[in-house]
């Protein structure tokens, strides 16, 4: 009985920390109050929105493959969860990079709807 409690507690603690890519889709959809569209996400990701870069400038138009930083040329591992199990597993990291990369490409933060759309598209990639 004691062991079961310990195991349950450990599992709970672990699940509170590590997150799965789908959790982010759910969270952004909830924040947006609307369903996500993978098609809209693809368009958002691959087109420039007034700035010098689009998301694809560094993550490529097919994020199942590795990218390169548009300015520094440093290699970037694939962004799609199906190609890279490390992606979208830590909320602090996901929030930090959405903040930075949206600022760099749009000169503003991304809306919850935009993030939900991008997530839906990335999750659909195989």
């Amino acid at each position: 009985m004691r062991y079961i409690l310990i195991i349950a507690a450990t599992l709970f603690a672990a699940s509170a920390q590590a997150e799965a890519p789908r959790d982010f889709l759910a969270r952004f959809e909830k924040e947006a109050g609307a369903a996500a569209s993978a098609e809209r996400g693809a368009r958002f990701f691959t087109t420039k929105q007034g700035g010098e870069w689009s998301c694809a400038s560094c993550h490529t138009e097919k994020p199942m493959q590795a990218g390169r930083h548009a300015k520094t040329d440093k290699a970037i591992t694939p962004l799609a969860p199906a190609a890279n199990a490390e992606r979208f597993t830590e909320a602090a990291k996901v929030d930090k990079w959405f903040r930075r990369n949206c600022n760099d490409t749009l000169n503003r933060l991304c809306s919850a709807q935009e993030k939900a759309d991008v997530m839906a598209w990335l999750l659909a990639l195989r």
């Binding site: 300015k71 930090k96 903040r99 930075r100 990369n101 600022n103 760099d104």
Partner: peptide, 11 residues
């Protein structure tokens, strides 16, 4: 860091 050589590197 939010204006780091044209990139947002804020922490």
């Amino acid at each position: 860091l939010s204006r780091h050589f044209g990139s947002d590197a804020s922490l």
